[in-house]
Simulated scan of single mutants.
Amino acid sequence: MKVYSKKSVQHVNASIEECWAFFSSPRNLQKMTPKTMGFEITDFDGENMYPGQIIQYKVSPLFGIKLIWVTEITIVEEQRYFVDEQRFGPYTLWHHKHFFEPTENGVKMTDLVHYAIPFGFIGRMMNALVVKNKLNEIFEYRANRVNEIFNSK
């Protein structure tokens, strides 16, 4: 199994409290996801993030095909980091760490995703041709939304 990684670092013009409140709320996931993904939370307990929380979505990452994606919040360290892991969905492995570090003028936000795709050689080809680019688009969209929400004040 080939494991890939994607790292993103962005400055957020907000306090650590504001930043954490926004990003640790599953209610805000849809605001940070491109509309073309057809993202919809289908099962969520309505609570703020906590270890063991299960969130279920429908997404259409490719060709409009609806997929069910279930993630678990496995680790939460208030105002420092949290981890979400896929329990069911399109990846063989999805492990996403979200780090928040206060700076003099805001928060340094770092995302690190490790992922693997099923189907061996075909999966590696799909990553090279489609998946890697789609993830880059999603992270670019998210960076633009962060700029709109926090950095354009």
Rank of each mutant, 00 (worst) to 15 (best):
K108W: 00
R80F: 00
M126C: 12
K134C: 05
E77I: 13
E72Q: 14
P118E: 09
W20C: 04
P26A: 06
V146I: 15
I149R: 07
R145V: 13
M125R: 09
F150L: 03
V107E: 00
K31F: 03
N13R: 12
G123N: 02
E17H: 11
L62M: 12
T42S: 08
V146Q: 08
E40A: 11
N105D: 10
I41G: 08
A128S: 14
F63S: 15
R27T: 11
E137P: 09
K58C: 07
I138K: 01
N144H: 10
F139H: 08
Q56T: 15
L67F: 14
F139L: 01
M49P: 05
K2M: 10
E17C: 05
T71E: 15
F88Q: 13
K97H: 12
V146T: 11
L62P: 06
Q10S: 12
P34N: 10
W20T: 02
N13W: 00
N133Q: 14
G106N: 03
A128M: 14
T33Q: 10
I55K: 02
C19K: 04
T92I: 03
M32H: 03
R145C: 03
V130D: 04
E78Y: 15
L67S: 08
V130M: 13
Q53W: 05
M1G: 15
F88Y: 15
D84S: 08
L62D: 04
K108L: 07
Y91W: 05
V59P: 02
S8E: 15
K2I: 15
F44K: 05
E40F: 08
L135N: 12
A128H: 12
H114R: 10
E104F: 09
P102C: 01
V107P: 04
G106F: 03
Q86H: 06
D45M: 07
M1D: 11
N133I: 07
I122D: 01
A21N: 13
G38L: 04
S152Y: 06
I68C: 07
P61C: 07
F39N: 03
F139N: 07
N147H: 12
F22Q: 02
F150D: 07
E101F: 09
K108F: 00
E78C: 12
D111A: 01
G38R: 02
V107S: 00
F139T: 06
W20G: 07
T110N: 00
E85W: 07
M37L: 13
R124F: 06
R142A: 02
S25Y: 09
P61I: 05
P34D: 13
E47P: 00
K7W: 10
H95V: 01
D111I: 00
F39I: 05
V76D: 09
I55Q: 06
P102R: 01
P90C: 11
V76I: 11
P90N: 13
H98N: 04
K97R: 15
I73K: 00
E47A: 11
E101Y: 08
N133R: 13
G38V: 05
M49L: 14
D84R: 09
T110A: 10
L29D: 15
K134V: 12
S15Q: 02
G64A: 04
N144E: 15
C19Y: 04
A14N: 06
T103Y: 04
E85G: 03
R142I: 06
L67Q: 14
E47M: 06
I65D: 05
N105M: 07
N28K: 08
G52N: 10
L62H: 10
K97D: 12
K7L: 11
G52A: 04
